[in-house]
């Protein structure tokens, strides 16, 4: 009973092992993009894609190992709402960039 009270529904159920794995993976996924850029690699689509991929991977690592997101029934509403917000954020960010680029193009802002 007492143990139940320490972990109310939806709360974190972490372990030292989980946090350590999360930390190590995060360090690796931070070191890769910083290493690439700081060694003065030429800017290219490849490098941009790598930076984005490392960022997305690290966000997932932190969601799973630090925020303990999962598909368990106790966590399912946290996860569902987060997936919904990802959709909203994608519409907001990609939509804004898309629209503004077209506006710039039509108004010849580059000239």
């Amino acid at each position: 009973m007492e143990d139940n009270h320490a972990n109310p529904g939806g709360a974190a159920h972490g372990s030292l092992r989980q946090y350590t794995i999360g930390l190590i993976l995060s360090i690796v996924l931070t070191a890769i993009p910083f290493g690439l850029v700081m060694t003065g690699v030429q800017a290219s689509l490849m490098v941009f894609t790598l930076i984005i991929l490392c960022a997305i991977a690290q966000i997932f690592v932190q969601l799973v190992f630090f925020l303990h997101m999962s598909m368990e029934s106790e966590q399912i509403w946290n996860t569902t709402s987060a997936v919904f917000i990802v959709l909203i954020v994608a519409i907001l960010v990609l939509g804004s960039i898309w629209i503004m680029q077209h506006l710039n193009h039509n108004m010849l802002m580059g000239h």
Binding site: N4, H5, P8, G9, G10, A11, E74
Partner: peptide, 8 residues
């Protein structure tokens, strides 16, 4: 007990 989960 339930409120705690709701709060989070």
């Amino acid at each position: 007990h339930d409120y705690d989960g709701d709060t989070l």
